[in-house]
């Protein structure tokens, strides 16, 4: 695809870039902070979490920065009151939808959702907690999947398919009943596709996926590692 140079404005700043890039990419290159959760550099963006919403002049609805491509003369705003309000709502809904008890969570202190809650200054939650009954899948010898802490960002699903090529993970059901599943909804430990590589665990932003070998305080996930891996694999040596 041939790139064409284009000029756009983000938060009043005039920025030169090339066509084919997402608003998120351009913002990152220019040190403009955008909150994200389902985005992981290198894998396909799906626009699932709705945290990266931006305002584009002339477009009536908010658009997700991770899936919207830049266009010439676009005027973009990333931190209006409206956007902040939406981000806070989204974060609160994450917290209310499943059962997050940070104090006893393996990811406490190392969790992207927890960090997000600080970023949007979430001091309370205005929505009723759903308290769903969620399974903890401990069947895999090395890892645990705890649906109580899953925000259904699908980073695990995409990493498994696009980077490892194992296609173990998928998504089942809709709405609040949506669940990440292993193979055809069988226990993870019985998977015939999982290669035990642990990339999904590294990619997961919360305490939903974690290695059995660690306890609270020891979790050290490195999703950037996946992004680096993707870059390295592109290199032809």
């Amino acid at each position: 695809m041939s790139m064409t140079k284009l000029t756009l404005q983000i938060d009043g700043r005039s920025i030169e870039t090339e066509s084919g890039r997402t608003i998120l990419e351009v913002c990152k290159e220019n040190d403009i902070t955008i909150l994200t959760m389902c985005h992981l550099k290198g894998i396909t963006d799906v626009g699932a979490c709705r945290l990266c919403l931006v305002e584009i002049e002339g477009v009536s609805k908010l658009m997700s920065a991770c899936t919207t491509k830049v266009a010439d003369k676009m005027i973009i705003r990333t931190s209006t009151e409206k956007i902040k309000r939406y981000q806070r709502i989204t974060t609160e809904l994450f917290a209310a939808e499943r059962n997050h008890v940070c104090s006893v969570c393996i990811a406490n202190g190392h969790c992207e959702l927890q960090k997000l809650a600080y970023d949007v200054k979430m001091d309370h939650i205005r929505y009723p907690y759903l308290f769903p009954q969620c399974e903890v899948d401990t069947s895999h010898p090395l890892y645990v999947l705890d649906h109580n802490r899953c925000i259904v960002c699908t980073r695990c699903v995409r990493v498994c398919a696009e980077v490892e090529g194992a296609y173990n993970w998928d998504v089942m059901n809709r709405g609040t009943n949506v669940r990440i599943i292993s193979d055809f909804n069988t226990p993870w430990g019985e998977s015939i596709t999982c290669s035990d590589c642990g990339k999904c665990v590294e990619a997961c932003p919360t305490g939903a996926l974690w290695p059995k070998a660690v306890v609270q305080g020891q979790l050290n996930k490195a999703p950037e590692f996946i992004s680096d891996l993707i870059e390295k694999r592109k290199m032809k040596l």
């Binding site: 104090s103 202190g109 306890v215 609270q216 305080g217 020891q218």
Partner: peptide, 12 residues
């Protein structure tokens, strides 16, 4: 609420 007391010893 100390962290790091783990089966097999301690984390730090």
């Amino acid at each position: 609420h100390a962290m790091g007391i783990a089966p097999g010893g301690i984390a730090f």
